[in-house]
């Protein structure tokens, strides 16, 4: 079972697992939401570079009517998505309390695991701002164990030499399995249709009917360039580089913020022991993940695949045994 375990869940190096030998290092993002200003330049730059069409009617209403965020969620036509949340002091107090206990010891160190003492949220939040805005630029996580990649039946999704997960649009047949398998709801099938260009003419949507998501700008990486979103971000909220550097940077930033008393800060995806083996895109969040529309405990669905196949095998064996057994018991008709 060692083979299955390392392939399907747990900490591992996806580049080595995919048998790449070029010696490229894993690339990733660190998205520091504490300094994001919600300008959405990253969303625009991504659309421009990757020729991602504008939202269509199939993506839902053009105006969400709930906040300054009108792109809603990551999807086939939104590869970067900037979330916008407005909160009062009580929510900040709660985030400070929940973030303070998360600096637990990593599992694979010598010291025993211990969480900090529980922190009580102050009953009356005092000295906190009356309102805070949370802005966070979300993107494909380029998971260590990517559900989308595992379940793809055509091999259209592949693990690149940079450890990222990329769709080959000319191979994908639009079966949609990856869409259901992503624990973060990132990848989506782009529906066929037409887009209207500025001058009123219409063109077919590129790559209609196939799964689409962030490629971590595979084409730019191969030319030694920075992905469009990181290149354009005016606040350095998005940084790009070797994954190990990104993780180190994220942990350092977390320590700084906690030192300054911003205990609401926490990382997301930096822990290689989490349910997806850690993610290639690491985030620093200022509240619990679900406040941003991120799953609080993502687990790659294929972790349970060996058990599923075992149970299906038992069910199938019972089926043929019972069916042929009943026929045998009745024997030939008299």
């Amino acid at each position: 079972m060692g083979f299955w375990r390392n392939q399907l869940s747990g900490p591992t190096d996806p580049i080595a697992d995919a048998n790449w030998t070029q010696g490229e290092s894993r690339k990733g993002f660190f998205t520091d939401t504490s300094i994001c200003i919600g300008c959405k330049a990253c969303e625009v730059a991504c659309k421009e570079w990757n020729r991602v069409p504008a939202r269509t009617d199939a993506d839902g209403p053009a105006w969400q009517g709930s906040s300054y965020d009108n792109s809603g969620h990551l999807g086939a036509n939104t590869w970067r998505h900037v979330a916008f949340i407005e909160q009062g002091p009580d929510q900040l107090a709660r985030a400070k309390a929940s973030g303070a206990v998360l600096l637990g010891m990593p599992k694979r160190t010598a010291e025993p695991t211990r969480l900090a003492e529980p922190v009580e949220a102050p009953a009356e939040p005092v000295g906190l701002p009356a309102v805070r805005w949370l802005m966070s630029s979300d993107v494909c996580k380029h998971c260590t164990h990517a559900g989308c990649l595992d379940v793809c039946p055509t091999g259209a999704l592949f693990r690149s030499e940079y450890g990222t997960v990329v769709v080959q649009a000319d191979v994908c047949n639009g079966c949609g399995y990856c869409v259901a398998a992503c624990p973060f709801g990132v990848i989506e099938r782009r529906e066929k249709g037409v887009v209207e260009i500025g001058d009123g003419t219409q063109q077919p949507v590129p790559n209609g009917g196939v799964a689409q998501k962030c490629t971590l700008c595979y084409d730019r990486l191969r030319d030694g360039q920075t992905p469009a979103c990181a290149q354009t971000c005016p606040t350095t909220s998005i940084s790009f580089g070797d994954h190990s550097d990104m993780v180190a940077k994220a942990r350092a930033r977390l320590a700084t913020l906690h030192e300054q008393g911003h205990t609401e800060a926490r990382l997301y995806g930096a822990n290689p022991d989490d349910g997806v083996g850690g993610t290639g895109s690491v985030f620093l969040l200022m509240d619990e993940p679900e406040a941003y529309g991120l799953p609080p405990d993502p687990v790659v669905t294929t972790r349970d695949l060996p058990r599923m196949f075992t149970l299906a095998g038992m069910a199938g064996t019972a089926m043929i045994g019972v069916a042929l057994g009943v026929f045998a018991a009745f024997g030939r008709p008299s």
Binding site: L103, G104, R251, R266, G269, A270, N271, P272, D273, P298
Partner: peptide, 14 residues
């Protein structure tokens, strides 16, 4: 999180 496997924890060595 108590077992050090939380998605929001800083985590250990990769």
């Amino acid at each position: 999180a108590a077992a050090g496997q939380g998605a929001t924890q800083p985590g250990g060595e990769w």
